[in-house]
Amino acid sequence: MVYTLTSGGIEKYSVNLLKHIDKQKFSLDFITKIDRKEFFDDQVASLGGKKIPLSSEKSSGVREMFELFWNAYKTARRGYDLAYFNLSTPAAVFKYPLICKLAGIHKIVIHSHNASEDGAGIGHSVVNYLGRAVINRISSERFACSDKAAQWMFGGKVAEQGQYTLIQNGIETVKYTYNKEKREKIRKELNIGRDHLVLGHVGRFAEQKNHEFLIAIMKEISKIDTKAVLLLIGVGEKFGSIQSLVHEYGLNDRVRFMGETDRVADLMQAMDVFVLPSHFEGLPVVAIEAQASGLKCVLSSNISLEADVTGNVSFLDLNLGPKKWANFIDEVRGYQRQDTSKAICDAQYDIRETTRLVEKKLTEVSRF
């Protein structure tokens, strides 16, 4: 179950799983929140998956809440063998996972994809604390993309005792492998010169991703290199405010908003340095994709060290400020880009390896 089929990391992981899973053994339905056209709809349909929305786009308020919970209950009563939830917060268990349990689905898989949340106050902390207790009681299997994500979703004791399965955020390695000819082609298409420094970022425009800091970095970079370009891939609630900030800093010709696109792999070929100054992450899929593309990656130190699987990753503290980040990026820009596909596969981050492990664990869960 995913809440949307937009272009986010959880959604991409879910669709990649559908693409590579053994369809002779597994049938996947995607239960989403709202009935509307979304980024991955066509791909899910072409892969034989089924999308089941719980409420209409026109619903709101109490009516929407009633539709969501009632339809979730009815859907859960259709005779599913197990329910697989990709969650970002422990509190989310009080919505659809608990409903599915009450509706009679006894096999519940909880997969943690995050390590914190935006603006969590005391109230949120209490609900998350209670959520961990419920998760550990109703879940038949626990997955996490990193140790930090396991601690966040299941609690320190469960993580320390290894009572979860580490599921790597597998990617389609071949799709991202560095290709010099493709890089030149994409740069030409984007009208970017060979000697231009290109920074890149992929992520939802939200507080978690810290776009304001990224734009401030670009402001400092532009003082060092007037030809530098920043490619921003994604959409989200802060899209408009970030556009305004770019205009305020006079970076309109330096920052390019690429929107929601299925060409992430191609655009990464055109980049030189991938920058991810997030406030928190589980283990970002985009960081693995960037490394698979042979890119030098500069990530926030808030991100798990597990994200470095090629040795091409540097972690910087956000407290250093945008200027020091910019200076560091300028220092590392001259690296020799190489094919890192073997390192990605050796670290078991290829989606085929991930899928085989998920298949194995789901089969084990369904037997008991």
Score class of each variant (00 low, 15 high):
332 V>Q: 13
205 F>N: 04
213 F>M: 11
270 A>Y: 09
335 Y>L: 07
40 F>A: 04
34 I>V: 15
348 Q>F: 04
186 I>K: 06
360 K>M: 08
7 S>H: 04
224 I>N: 03
292 A>W: 01
137 R>H: 10
113 H>K: 03
119 G>A: 07
146 S>K: 05
135 I>T: 08
334 G>L: 07
43 Q>V: 12
132 R>M: 06
147 D>K: 13
28 L>G: 05
334 G>Y: 14
19 K>P: 11
223 K>G: 10
226 T>K: 14
284 P>S: 10
188 K>V: 00
165 T>N: 12
15 V>E: 07
5 L>V: 12
324 K>Y: 10
304 S>R: 06
56 S>E: 11
350 D>S: 09
233 I>P: 09
50 K>D: 03
304 S>A: 13
35 D>Y: 01
74 K>L: 14
36 R>I: 12
79 G>C: 02
10 I>A: 14
167 I>H: 01
14 S>R: 03
81 D>R: 08
202 V>H: 02
362 L>C: 02
123 G>V: 12
34 I>M: 04
193 G>P: 00
349 Y>H: 15
241 S>R: 11
338 Q>V: 15
24 Q>R: 14
360 K>S: 11
51 K>R: 15
313 V>E: 08
167 I>E: 04
73 Y>D: 07
361 K>Q: 11
312 N>A: 07
101 K>R: 15
244 S>H: 03
68 L>M: 13
192 I>E: 14
117 E>R: 10
191 N>L: 10
314 S>I: 06
90 P>R: 02
180 K>N: 12
30 F>V: 06
330 D>Y: 08
363 T>I: 11
41 D>C: 04
185 K>C: 08
248 E>W: 00
141 E>W: 00
114 N>R: 07
291 Q>A: 05
82 L>M: 15
49 G>C: 06
49 G>H: 02
183 R>D: 06
303 I>M: 02
272 D>S: 06
182 K>I: 11
249 Y>H: 14
107 K>V: 02
201 H>G: 01
286 V>N: 07
317 D>L: 06
95 K>E: 13
308 D>I: 06
183 R>W: 01
13 Y>E: 08
280 F>Y: 15
211 H>A: 03
365 V>K: 07
230 L>S: 13
150 A>R: 05
354 T>W: 08
226 T>R: 11
108 I>M: 05
126 V>F: 13
136 N>P: 02
93 V>K: 03
230 L>P: 08
22 D>Q: 05
209 K>C: 09
56 S>L: 10
83 A>G: 14
49 G>V: 06
21 I>E: 06
96 Y>S: 09
48 G>V: 04
290 A>C: 09
238 K>D: 12
287 A>F: 01
17 L>P: 02
201 H>V: 03
196 H>G: 00
140 S>C: 01
277 P>Y: 10
181 E>T: 15
48 G>C: 06
42 D>Q: 15
4 T>E: 08
233 I>F: 01
81 D>C: 03
146 S>E: 12
310 T>R: 05
102 L>T: 06
270 A>M: 05
340 T>N: 15
66 F>M: 13
317 D>Q: 13
329 I>M: 05
341 S>L: 06
301 S>W: 00
23 K>V: 03
246 V>P: 01
168 Q>W: 00
62 V>F: 12
125 S>D: 14
163 Q>E: 14
328 F>Y: 15
285 V>P: 00
65 M>F: 14
217 I>M: 05
